[in-house]
Computed example of a mutant assay.
Amino acid sequence: MRFMDEAKYLLKQNIRDYGMYVALAVIMIIFTVTTGGLFISSRNISNLINQTGYIAVLAVGMTLIIVIRHIDLSVGYLAGFLGAIAAILLTKAGAPVYLTILVVLVLGTLIGLFNGYLVAYVGIPAFVATLAGMLAFRGALLLVTEETGTIIVPNKSFNAIGNGFIPDIAHIPGIHLLTLLIGGLAIVFYIYSEFNVRKNKIKYNFEVISFKMFILKLVLVSSIIAYVTWILSGYNGLSWTVVIVIIVVAIYHVITTKTPLGRYIYAVGGNPEAAKLSGIDVSKITLIVFGSMGLLSALSGILYTARLQSATTTAGTLFELDAIAAAYVGGVSAAGGVGKVTGSIVGALVMASLINGMNLMGVGISYQYIIRGAVLAAAVIFDVKTRNKSR
C-alpha cells in the first residue's frame, strides 16, 4: 500500500511533467484501435516521427522563448525563407552542401540576434517585432521564389537529411541492426545516468524516491526506448532527421539543466526584476535566446526543404503556430519560467499524432483544426489550473 501511496503522491506532485506522456499514450492507444493497428505500424511511426522533425526543432527554441515570457511569430516564414536560400545556394550558386548549411545557420542566427536586439535593447514588444519579421520574411520568400514558384533541389546528399536513413552494419531482413544497437546503448546510458543522479542526491542528502519506484521508472522508460527502436528497426531504422532532432534536444537539455546559462534563462522567466537585481543581464539572456531561435529556425528550414526536396512559396505556413502549440502541450507555462525542451518534443509528437491519426481515420480537415484547437486550449487550461493549485 505504501508503494501505491508513493505512486499517487509522485503523480500528483509531478502532474505537469507526467500529464503530456499520459496524453500521448492515450492518443496512440485510441488511434491504434480505431485504425486496426495501422497507426502503430513501423512504416507509419517512422513517417510520423520524420514529419515531426522540423516542428520539433522549432518547438525546442520556442519553449525557451516562452520561458522568458516572450513569443516569436517570425519563425515559420523565416524557416521557409532560409530553406529557399539553401535551395538557391545549392542549385544556382553551386555551393557544396556543408557550406550551404553553414551559411544558412549563420544567417538564421544573425536574424534571430537582430530580433533579440529589437526586443531587449530597443524595447519593442516581442509580439510586434516578430510579427513584422513574419510579414517581411513572407515577402522575402515570395521574392526569391517568384521566378519559378518552386525551386527543385536535385542534390541527393542534401535531400538525404530529410529523407535518408542511417546505414546498417548488417543485412538482416526486416531488422535494422544498427538502430537496435543504438537503442540498447541509449538504455544503458539512461540507466547509468539515473543511478549516478540518484547517488549524488543521496550523497548530499536530497530527497529521492524509494528504490522500488526508482526501478519501476527505469523499467518503464527503458521499455519505451526499446519498443520505439524495435518499431523503427522494422522500417529502414533511424532517419537522419531523427538523429538531428535527438542531438538538438540533447544539447539543449544539457544547456538548460547543467549550465549557468540555463539557470539564468529560467531565472529571467520566473521573475525578470528579481533576476536583474541578482546581477543577471536580462537583455543579454533575451538576445541569446532569440539568437538560438533564429539558429533553430534555419535548421528547421533545412529539414523541411530537404524533406520536400524543393523550396516552395508556401513553405513555413503556420509553422510558428505548430511550434507554439507543441511547446504549450509539452508543459511550458504561459506565465513563463516553467518548461522543458524534452517536454516540447513530446508536445510535438502529441500534435503530430493527432494529425496523423485523424488522417488515417479520414477525418475532415475542418474537424482536424477544431480538435487541434481544443487540445491546445485544454493544455493552457491545464497549465493555469495546476499553477493555481501549486500556489
Rank of each mutant, 00 (worst) to 15 (best):
N155V: 10
I345Q: 01
I302T: 04
I224A: 05
L296F: 08
T148F: 14
L10K: 01
T317G: 05
A334N: 13
I215V: 15
A86P: 01
G123R: 14
L99S: 14
S210L: 00
I175H: 00
L90Y: 04
L105N: 03
F81S: 02
M28R: 03
Y227T: 15
L89E: 07
L11D: 00
A298K: 02
G331W: 04
V338M: 05
L58Q: 08
L82M: 03
L180A: 07
P167D: 03
I152Q: 12
V268I: 12
S310E: 07
K284G: 12
P173S: 03
T286V: 14
V245S: 08
T286C: 11
H176P: 05
R138S: 07
L58F: 09
T130Y: 02
Y98R: 12
M358T: 11
G53N: 15
S283A: 15
N236E: 14
L110W: 05
A126S: 15
V103A: 13
G112R: 10
A306W: 07
R43G: 10
I169F: 10
N205K: 12
N388I: 13
W230K: 10
L178E: 09
I288T: 10
S344K: 01
I225W: 05
G139T: 01
Y235K: 12
L216M: 11
A311N: 00
P260I: 00
L118I: 11
G94H: 07
Y367G: 03
I175Y: 02
G116M: 03
S46P: 12
Y117I: 13
L99T: 14
S42R: 05
M361T: 06
G123W: 13
T256R: 00
G357P: 12
V104K: 00
F158W: 08
R16H: 09
G336K: 10
L64R: 10
L349A: 05
L141D: 01
A323H: 10
S366E: 15
V219H: 08
R263H: 11
G83S: 06
A59L: 11
M351K: 05
T32Y: 10
A298W: 02
F290C: 09
N359R: 11
A275T: 15
R198Q: 06
V346L: 06
S210E: 00
L89V: 05
R43H: 13
A326L: 07
L376C: 08
L177D: 03
N163M: 12
F81Q: 00
V219I: 15
L142F: 15
A126K: 12
L349F: 11
A334H: 07
T257A: 07
L135S: 15
L10C: 01
P272M: 02
F81E: 02
I215Y: 01
L113C: 09
V384S: 12
L303C: 02
P272E: 01
V26P: 07
T63P: 01
G373C: 05
L321C: 04
A93E: 04
G262T: 00
R391F: 13
Y252D: 06
N271Q: 15
L105K: 04
L178I: 09
D17T: 11
S157L: 14
G343V: 04
G262K: 00
N271Y: 14
G183K: 09
K203Y: 11
G339K: 01
M1Y: 00
I191R: 05
R387L: 12
S310M: 06
Y190W: 06
Y9A: 04
L299G: 01
I370Q: 06
V248Q: 01
S41Q: 03
K203F: 10
